[in-house]
């Protein structure tokens, strides 16, 4: 009985607890009806464990259902909720409100991607560039016509280490958003696609190196990267696109 009472006391204390608040300034823009972007303020309470995505969903569910944003897994696996949080591209689900260390959080759509509405951006071009660089194993015997003669493409652990880091890419687009070249050259392939090109070039089962190097050896290709390194700084999965791009360029320059 005492235990039950204590539990109820805890519940009561929990309900009466005063939670800290944070002011969200959220960019709102509907290309169909609006001529320019505007910011709307929302004050929300948050817990120690609350993420920016938690707060945005709370705003959407309880304050303003018209807020448009994209999200899915809530655990930094799907790469859907990339947005500018206080000026830096980050995943909303992977950013705790506490770690932003500010009473005001400014939320904008990711830079360098066309806006669909509010915080939802169009990733079509990034996926098109990704596809252009053939993100799959290329080899003449990759199709298995007869199971009796087929064999597994064996790979030792050291060979996996050469590309596994780059295979962690979740295609969130944060690297493209922060890239200074992407900011001014709309035809640039972008760090995301270039990194994926290296992921397959460095895979010893793949035979498509020449094909991919030919695609990236273009005036809007790999030569436009100036090694600012910000792509690696913002990557939420530790992919390090700057490293992959320099290795890839090393092949074209004859260093590798």
């Amino acid at each position: 009985m005492a235990a039950v009472k204590s539990n109820e006391d805890n519940k009561s204390n929990f309900r009466n607890k005063t939670l800290p608040t944070v002011l969200f300034k959220i960019a709102r823009f509907n290309p169909v009806t609006d001529l320019r972007m505007k910011f709307i303020d929302y004050k929300v309470e948050y817990e120690n464990w609350s993420t920016v995505l938690d707060a945005l969903l709370m705003i959407k569910h309880k304050i303003d259902p018209s807020l448009a944003l994209r999200y899915s897994c809530r655990q930094a696996s799907c790469g859907s909720c990339g947005m500018m949080i206080n000026g830096k591209p980050r995943l909303a689900c992977f950013t705790k409100i506490n770690e932003v260390k500010s009473d005001v959080i400014r939320i904008e759509p990711m830079n360098n991607f066309p806006i669909i509405r509010d915080l939802a951006v169009d990733l079509t071009k990034m996926f098109r560039n990704h596809k252009k660089l053939k993100p799959y194993i290329i080899r003449s015997d990759s199709e298995i016509p007869d199971f009796s003669t087929s064999k597994e493409f064996l790979q030792d652990p050291d060979s996996i280490e050469q590309y596994i880091q780059f295979a962690n890419c979740i295609k969130c687009g944060l690297c493209n958003s922060v890239c200074p070249t992407m900011a001014t050259d709309s035809s640039f392939i972008g760090p995301q696609a270039l990194t994926q090109a290296y992921r397959y070039v460095s895979d010893n089962r793949d035979k498509g190196k020449k094909t991919r190097l030919k695609i990236i050896d273009d005036k809007h290709g790999i030569w436009r990267c100036h090694f600012a390194g910000s792509c690696s700084k913002v990557c939420p999965k530790g992919v390090d696109p700057a490293m992959a791009i320099q290795f890839l360029r090393g092949y074209l320059l004859g260093f590798r």
Partner: peptide, 20 residues
């Protein structure tokens, strides 16, 4: 640009400090 001095690829650990 030639891939010299930008680190070696490997499994990244949190907090994912870029080796490049």
């Amino acid at each position: 640009h030639g891939g010299i001095g930008v680190g070696k690829p490997g499994r990244p650990d949190y907090p994912y400090l870029p080796k490049s």
